[in-house]
Amino acid sequence: MEVRTIKVFTTVDNINLHTQVVDMSMTYGQQFGPTYLDGADVTKIKPHNSHEGKTFYVLPNDDTLRVEAFEYYHTTDPSFLGRYMSALNHTKKWKYPQVNGLTSIKWADNNCYLATALLTLQQIELKFNPPALQDAYYRARAGEAANFCALILAYCNKTVGELGDVRETMSYLFQHANLDSCKRVLNVVCKTCGQQQTTLKGVEAVMYMGTLSYEQFKKGVQIPCTCGKQATKYLVQQESPFVMMSAPPAQYELKHGTFTCASEYTGNYQCGHYKHITSKETLYCIDGALLTKSSEYKGPITDVFYKENSYTTTIK
């Protein structure tokens, strides 16, 4: 009895394709271990004539594949690729409408935090270190965002349907971005203890939790000093293409032309909904596939993004 075979390709990165001759009487799992086709788990399936010449994702289970996976995804987590594939199996079914010149995501599976993050990423200057993220990001900007969303979920250790947080998501993504040249110098002034300067680099240099107003941050924000008295913390120097200011959701007025974009969060910790506000020729609110415009805006804002380049204080 002759062994019926077909020729397929296996890959971990969709760049390096490895030619395989597979036995049609055995499952993919018996031949390769966990195997995925377009995100779908085909591990328990036997090869079919229609699979001839198709590319299958496999887990990096030998040295060659491990090197290829690390170079593309910059992670050695053995569960990463499987999590990416199972997320992709959902995100490829989502709709990605162009809204006001940006790629958004039609609401499904509690994905409003991903839509808000995706919209924000198209408006701030950011370059990702893992080629996987950078490639998928370019495709997302062009309207094909399924891979990018699935990668975000995998890097953030999230599953489809789980509630997510924009600030946490951005923080994970910033860790995989090139923020080497970003720098922030802060000064804390206390009447009792004097003053202390701190220099922050990388992710810490672009994120701040405690106030939404970048102007206020430049002037000074009140913080408790270690001595128990009130101290003032203010920005001395900022070198970065953008800054992200966050605070627990509270009524906040966004003035046209003073910011790049913002995240609105309605609801409580267990259950809520994100919308995205962007400042173009007027203010726009993007909620999944829905767009509304207004000249002014007041609502429960939790993150505001500002364009920056270089700032030095005039406070002496």
Score class of each variant (00 low, 15 high):
123 Q>T: 06
21 V>A: 12
18 H>R: 09
222 Q>L: 12
125 E>D: 14
299 G>M: 03
148 F>W: 03
175 Q>W: 06
111 N>Q: 02
246 S>W: 00
254 L>M: 05
209 M>P: 02
32 F>I: 12
155 Y>W: 05
58 V>Y: 05
229 K>D: 15
30 Q>N: 08
53 G>N: 15
141 R>H: 09
87 A>P: 04
41 D>C: 13
288 G>H: 04
75 T>V: 10
184 R>A: 15
141 R>Y: 06
85 M>S: 04
158 K>Y: 02
155 Y>L: 05
305 F>S: 01
8 V>G: 05
98 Q>R: 14
113 Y>G: 00
153 L>S: 03
254 L>P: 01
307 K>G: 07
120 T>A: 15
31 Q>D: 06
218 K>H: 03
32 F>P: 05
272 G>W: 00
214 Y>A: 01
266 T>P: 00
3 V>S: 14
268 N>P: 13
17 L>F: 10
310 S>K: 09
237 Q>C: 12
96 Y>T: 05
6 I>V: 14
80 F>L: 06
270 Q>M: 08
102 L>T: 04
146 A>P: 05
197 Q>S: 12
49 N>L: 14
166 V>A: 08
33 G>H: 05
188 V>W: 07
192 T>L: 09
272 G>L: 00
61 N>I: 14
150 A>D: 03
51 H>R: 04
53 G>A: 14
314 T>V: 11
224 P>A: 13
10 T>Y: 13
310 S>M: 15
258 T>Y: 07
266 T>G: 10
219 K>Q: 13
304 V>H: 00
285 C>G: 04
290 L>D: 15
107 W>K: 04
209 M>Q: 15
294 S>W: 11
80 F>H: 03
74 H>F: 06
146 A>I: 03
177 A>T: 10
165 D>T: 01
74 H>W: 05
257 G>L: 05
201 K>G: 08
148 F>I: 08
96 Y>R: 03
137 Y>W: 08
71 E>A: 11
307 K>A: 13
140 A>G: 04
230 Q>G: 07
282 T>Q: 12
239 E>R: 10
160 V>C: 08
62 D>G: 09
262 A>R: 00
196 Q>C: 11
20 Q>T: 13
146 A>R: 05
129 N>S: 09
216 Q>Y: 05
192 T>M: 11
29 G>N: 06
153 L>Y: 15
124 I>W: 05
243 V>R: 01
178 N>K: 11
109 D>R: 03
136 A>Y: 09
55 T>Q: 08
292 T>N: 09
36 Y>C: 05
138 Y>L: 15
159 T>S: 15
141 R>E: 07
256 H>N: 09
96 Y>W: 04
214 Y>C: 04
77 D>C: 12
205 A>R: 01
57 Y>L: 09
119 L>T: 02
198 T>V: 14
72 Y>D: 06
35 T>N: 04
169 T>G: 02
172 Y>I: 14
130 P>T: 09
94 W>S: 02
45 I>G: 13
44 K>W: 10
176 H>D: 03
208 Y>M: 09
41 D>P: 13
138 Y>F: 15
312 T>Y: 11
9 F>G: 05
161 G>Y: 04
58 V>I: 11
3 V>G: 12
146 A>E: 08
178 N>H: 08
303 D>F: 00
47 P>R: 04
19 T>I: 13
110 N>G: 01
196 Q>S: 13
281 E>C: 04
123 Q>S: 08
107 W>H: 02
25 S>M: 11
129 N>E: 11
232 T>H: 07
260 T>K: 00
180 D>C: 07
251 Q>I: 14
254 L>K: 02
297 Y>L: 04
14 N>G: 15
127 K>D: 11
236 V>Y: 08
201 K>P: 03
202 G>K: 04
24 M>A: 15
53 G>W: 11
164 G>F: 02
310 S>V: 15
17 L>E: 09
189 V>E: 14
29 G>S: 08
182 C>M: 03
273 H>C: 03
108 A>G: 05
275 K>T: 15
19 T>Q: 08
219 K>R: 13
135 D>G: 07
89 N>M: 08
62 D>K: 08
42 V>N: 07
291 L>H: 15
198 T>W: 11
103 T>N: 03
82 G>I: 13
81 L>V: 14
308 E>K: 06
90 H>L: 13
299 G>R: 06
85 M>T: 06
5 T>F: 11
39 G>L: 08
60 P>E: 07
99 V>P: 06
40 A>F: 13
287 D>C: 00
46 K>G: 10
30 Q>H: 13
223 I>P: 00
3 V>P: 14
160 V>H: 05
46 K>T: 12
307 K>M: 12
180 D>A: 09
265 Y>N: 03
184 R>Y: 01
261 C>A: 05
291 L>G: 09
143 G>Y: 02
87 A>R: 04
133 L>S: 03
226 T>G: 14
187 N>D: 07
259 F>I: 00
151 L>T: 02
62 D>Q: 08
234 Y>F: 09
166 V>I: 06
100 N>K: 13
154 A>V: 06
65 L>F: 09
11 T>S: 10
269 Y>G: 15
96 Y>K: 02
143 G>E: 03
25 S>Q: 15
139 R>G: 09
220 G>D: 05
23 D>Y: 09
315 I>F: 15
37 L>I: 11
40 A>L: 14
170 M>V: 06
142 A>Q: 15
179 L>S: 04
41 D>Y: 07
151 L>E: 03
1 M>I: 02
73 Y>T: 05
286 I>F: 10
274 Y>T: 00
262 A>M: 00
198 T>Q: 14
272 G>R: 00
110 N>M: 02
258 T>C: 08
140 A>F: 09
69 A>R: 05
16 N>V: 07
228 G>R: 03
198 T>C: 14
16 N>A: 08
183 K>Q: 15
192 T>P: 04
186 L>E: 15
105 I>L: 06
70 F>G: 11
61 N>L: 14
46 K>I: 12
239 E>W: 05
266 T>I: 10
182 C>F: 05
68 E>N: 06
27 T>P: 11
263 S>E: 00
58 V>H: 06
7 K>Y: 09
250 A>T: 15
271 C>Y: 11
176 H>W: 15
221 V>N: 03
87 A>K: 06
176 H>C: 07
128 F>N: 01
241 P>N: 07
180 D>P: 00
95 K>S: 14
257 G>M: 07
262 A>W: 02
75 T>K: 09
316 K>A: 15
109 D>T: 04
136 A>R: 02
256 H>R: 12
145 A>V: 03
148 F>G: 02
200 L>D: 10
307 K>W: 04
67 V>E: 10
97 P>I: 11
76 T>Q: 13
249 P>C: 03
42 V>C: 15
16 N>P: 05
108 A>H: 05
180 D>R: 08
232 T>W: 11
